[in-house]
Design a protein around this nucleic acid. Structure first.
Length: 586
DNA sequence: CTCTGGACTTAGAATTTAATAT
DNA sequence: ATATTAAATTCTAAGTCCAGAG
């Protein structure tokens, strides 16, 4: 096992204390600590747990056929569908309002898979999707949704209690000495596959998962979850080199899906903390690595030059590694190593800047990356070289892939991979921005605005975008009218203050101060919201920013941690909230 | 070296719940 | 009390990275 730094050790102590306290809530903590330390320390490489017990997954509720009065029409005539065909039809009917159902690929894939579920009579009748009328079914589901909203308090309460019962029974497991929350204990229900972007498989039928598809993973000496009556598990295994509890193979891509633990769990928390420790190790050697790749821009070897330019992009622009993808299986998206010639434009001069590279490509989730970046002359010249005699659809880095790149990175630092640069650059940016933007004299709302701006700088770096909320314009207008009303109120209060008698002045003054503060708060809120229109802060907050930076910042400026992290986030980052002091440096 | 399967993290949209306005 | 809006939570797709076989 690798040498542990002080902070690494304290993290382990932290988790052991948790285990200890949950087992023996008593005063004799110290004497047992050593014991547990040893118990957990001696896990050999790759062993994730010694004991794992859970109740298995919760399956999707069975299909409930439509009431008789809900009709499906084919070519203008009522048609009663078989249960299987009807179920698949309802999937389409439920999506009728969505743009998806107008897309040619979606319709083609859906129709092909739907026909597989039909009886031979249905198959011979239903030959054209355009002649299918799902509107009545769609209306029925809308009415159902509406009815659900209108349910009485008691009915809603009943549903809530049922969900709580399910969570209590299936939502937790025991891993070693901890009772842990499971992340996704419910099996994904059947439905129509919706890929992101221009996905060739959109509309395909995602089949219902049965117990016979399920692999259970738990320890031998645990109570093995029984399959539902009349069913069998595909397999029960006892593999303590993995962290998952349940797995099955999904039918769209043929990939494996898992049930794993919640981010609040020890096993996820430790991994998360390790990730940030790796990024901090990069901090110590990043200068050396940067000098190295700059040298490599001059290399005689094409492969080395490409590697060095790609690494420069990954470092400077926080691009993803960019694995190769199987053509036709997924949407056409790229990362750094898979960039094609058509994704960049070279401008020797643009808007008064020299050597500008214009990036335009679809990245993960088909989110567009568009950026005009001035680069160093050597990089520019190299790119020209890489593009020589190539077609637009050719790979920019034809001598490079993620495996070559990561192998190189591994040589530069143990545990270094392309994604570590994203984590490192995100976290260091937050830390720098917080230092730069926090004004000690600001009140709490203004300081939080600064925090959000620092967070936003990271989200922009990582290209975390969102579709502007549908009601964005309206909500901005509402906020503006609130501000106007508050301004009026303030003007009134000030007038009253002026005309007030001496004995009432103090009270009036306090009143206008209070209104002033409320106004300021609203204005800050408006600024924050406007700046956040197309930016998604959540992803960086949850996955890229070392939470200890935020915890330290809160401690330093007396900001309650609840203002930065909600309940779920506080659970996920419990380790950091307990560990980090105000002087923590990433 | 390439190819594939497997395990895990990261991602934005959709849905649900809570807070606030009416 | 009800309707509207915002925040929190859920959902599951889409990446990264690694190991092992050939």
């Amino acid at each position: 096992m690798a040498y542990l730094s002080t902070s690494e050790s304290s993290c382990i102590i932290y988790y052991n204390c948790l285990a200890l306290l949950s087992r023996h809530p008593g005063p004799d903590v110290r004497s047992q600590l050593t014991l547990i330390w040893w118990e957990e320390e001696r896990y050999p490489e790759g062993i994730k747990w010694k004991f794992l017990e859970h109740k298995g997954p919760v399956f999707a509720p069975p299909y409930e056929p439509l009431p008789e009065n809900v009709k499906f029409y084919y070519d203008g005539k009522v048609m009663k569908l078989s249960t299987k065909a009807e179920e698949v039809a309802t999937f389409f009917a439920k999506m009728l309002d969505h743009e998806y159902t107008t897309k040619e690929i979606f319709r083609k894939n859906f129709f092909k898979d739907w026909r597989k579920e039909m009886t031979s009579e249905e198959k011979s009748t239903i030959t054209n999707l355009s002649k299918c009328d799902f509107t009545h079914m769609s209306q029925y589901f809308k009415a159902q949704t509406e009815a659900r909203k209108q349910m009485s308090k008691e009915e809603k309460q009943k549903i809530k209690e049922e969900n709580e019962r399910l969570l209590k029974e299936y939502g937790y497991c025991v891993m070693d000495n901890h009772k842990e929350r499971i992340a996704n204990f419910k099996i994904e229900p059947p439905g129509l596959f919706r890929g992101r972007g221009n996905h060739p498989k959109m509309g395909m039928l995602k089949r219902r998962i049965m117990p016979e598809d399920i692999i259970i993973n738990c320890s031998k000496d645990s109570k093995i979850p029984p399959p539902p009556p009349g069913h069998k598990w595909k397999e029960v295994r006892h593999d303590n080199k993995v962290t998952w509890l349940v797995s099955w193979t999904e039918n769209i891509q043929g990939s494996i899906k898992y049930i794993m633990l919640n981010p609040s769990s020890r096993i996820k928390g430790e991994k998360d903390w390790q990730k940030y420790e790796t990024a901090r190790r990069l901090k110590k050697c990043v200068d050396k690595i940067r000098n190295q790749y700059r040298e490599d821009w001059k290399s005689k070897e094409m492969k080395v030059r490409q590697r060095a330019v790609a690494l420069y992009f990954i470092d400077k622009l926080a691009l993803r590694a960019g694995n190769e993808k199987e053509e036709g299986e997924t949407a056409d998206t790229v990362g750094c190593c898979s960039l094609r010639v058509e994704h960049i434009k070279l401008h020797p001069e643009l808007d008064g800047q020299e050597y500008v590279v214009e990036f335009d490509f679809l990245g993960k989730d088909s989110i567009r990356y568009y950026n005009k970046v001035p680069v160093e002359k050597r990089v520019f010249k190299n790119l020209q070289l890489f593009m020589e005699n190539k077609q637009p659809e050719d790979d920019l880095f034809d001598r490079l892939n993620t495996s070559i790149l990561n192998k190189h990175l591994q040589d530069l630092m143990e545990g270094l991979t392309a994604k570590v640069f994203r984590t490192y650059n995100a976290s260091i940016t937050l830390q720098q921005q917080l230092k730069e933007l926090t004004n000690p004299d600001d009140n709490i709302p203004a300081k939080i605005l600064s925090y959000n701006r620092a967070n936003r700088a990271v989200a922009i770096l990582c290209n975390h975008q969102r579709a502007p909320p549908k009601t964005f314009e309206k909500s901005m207008m509402n906020l503006q009218s609130k501000i106007d009303a508050k301004k009026e109120q303030l003007a009134d209060a000030r007038r009253e203050l002026k005309s007030a008698k001496a004995d009432a002045k103090v009270r009036r003054d306090e009143k206008s101060k209070k209104i002033e503060e409320q106004l300021m708060k609203l204005e800050v809120q408006a600024t924050d919201r406007e700046e956040n229109k197309q930016i998604a802060l959540g992803t960086s907050k949850l996955n890229y920013l070392d939470p200890r930076i935020s915890v330290a910042w809160c401690k330093k400026w007396g900001i309650p941690i609840e203002k930065i992290y909600n309940k779920t986030q506080r659970e996920k980052f419990a380790w950091a909230i307990d560990m980090a002091e105000e002087d923590y440096e990433f």
